[in-house]
């Protein structure tokens, strides 16, 4: 069995285990037998409701969100040809956060807040696209810089919003800044985006490999580089928007999961993308389960946990090998 195939098998097992764990653990005690019974013979009741009404949607949201972030990160690292690119470099999360926070300050309800977050994310994207993509010659460095500059400006506006917000609103606002799955809505849209965008990206994976050689070389080898870059931009943006709307901005997953897969020796995007999606999804599901249970009944923002767990693992991986990032 080749290394990528072995990794794929173990990551599938990891994904199954992470989802099983997310259904099993929580404030309400459920035994593995009860869970298996509920999966095989669903009988309505309290146990059934806790598993399928409370935990399953949240686990599905966590997995989709982690997968989307890892996918978007991997795509942007290719598009911007920068190992430091993460899903938030396009300013999407800052735009969404600002939109949502302004809605909260204005006293809007949840539905309006989500709409405002989407509007903020799209507005940020529109600015990056207009300045970085459309202006004269296409230049990935300009996209990167536009995103970084815009994010900095939006972050300042977010701080301003926090300062003027009423004391009681602050806690809910942190959701958008730290990333938290406690308020995640229906994950169906995120799953659809994950499957469609992920499938398309894997189908065109060889072209992504080609793009890492640089625009000119990719063109000389017969790739249609500009349409490819536009498609990558759109795919990464859609994946990020879907993830941000579900769980705010969860750091670390999108930046580091693709690198973790590369450090395990997988560099072909045809294998790297599926592995990154599985690892990102599993990782966020595990982190969210921990966030719900470690200090139960208090719930931690999962973004804090992804960093606390992920950073040492990543430092270990970086130190273990002569890492080629």
């Amino acid at each position: 069995m080749s290394r990528p195939v072995a990794l794929f098998a173990s990551f599938c097992a990891l994904a199954a285990a992470s989802l099983f764990g997310a259904l099993l653990f929580g404030a309400f005690p459920i035994s593995a037998t009860q869970l298996l019974d509920s999966i095989v013979f669903p009988i309505p009741g309290l146990v059934h409701d806790v598993i399928w009404q409370l935990r399953a949607p949240r686990a599905a949201a966590a997995f989709a969100c982690g997968g989307l972030l890892a996918l978007a990160g991997a795509l942007l690292q290719v598009l911007l040809r920068n190992p430091l690119a993460d899903p938030y470099v396009l300013g999407i999360s800052s735009g969404a956060a600002l939109g949502a926070l302004m809605a909260v300050v204005a006293g809007a309800g949840a539905a309006v807040m989500n709409a405002a977050a989407l509007a903020g994310a799209l507005a940020a994207l529109a600015v990056v696209f207009a300045v970085g993509v459309r202006a004269g010659d296409w230049n990935v460095y300009r996209i990167l810089l536009t995103g970084v500059v815009l994010s900095a400006g939006l972050a300042a506006l977010v701080s301003l919003t926090l300062v003027v917000a009423a004391q009681g609103q602050l806690r809910g606002m942190l959701f958008w800044l730290m990333g938290d799955l406690a308020y995640a809505g229906n994950p169906l849209a995120a799953w659809i985006v994950l499957i469609v965008v992920g499938g398309l990206a894997v189908a065109h994976a060889v072209k992504l490999d080609l793009l890492t050689l640089g625009d000119l070389k990719a063109r000389s080898l017969g790739a249609a580089v500009k349409p490819l870059q536009l498609a990558l931009f759109a795919a990464a943006a859609i994946a990020t928007v879907a993830a941000v709307l579900l769980a705010g901005s969860i750091g670390f997953v999108g930046l580091m999961v693709p690198h973790a897969v590369r450090l395990m020796g997988v560099t072909h995007h045809r294998m790297l993308l599926p592995l990154a999606i599985l690892l990102g999804g599993s990782f966020l599901t595990l982190a969210d389960t921990a966030a719900r249970t470690v200090l139960a009944p208090q719930q931690l923002p999962v973004g804090v946990l992804t960093a606390i767990v992920g950073v040492p693992v990543m430092l270990f991986l970086l130190g273990r090998k002569r890492a080629q990032l």
Binding site: H204, V206, T212, G214, S220, L221, T267, L325
Partner: peptide, 26 residues
């Protein structure tokens, strides 16, 4: 090309294989 700004993470064989792109099935 005279210059190439590759950010290539793969092996030497992977790199050379990309030359087959015009002939291979995507």
């Amino acid at each position: 090309l005279q210059q190439e700004d590759a950010v290539f993470w793969g092996s030497v064989l992977d790199y050379v294989l990309l030359g087959r792109f015009p002939h291979a099935s995507a």
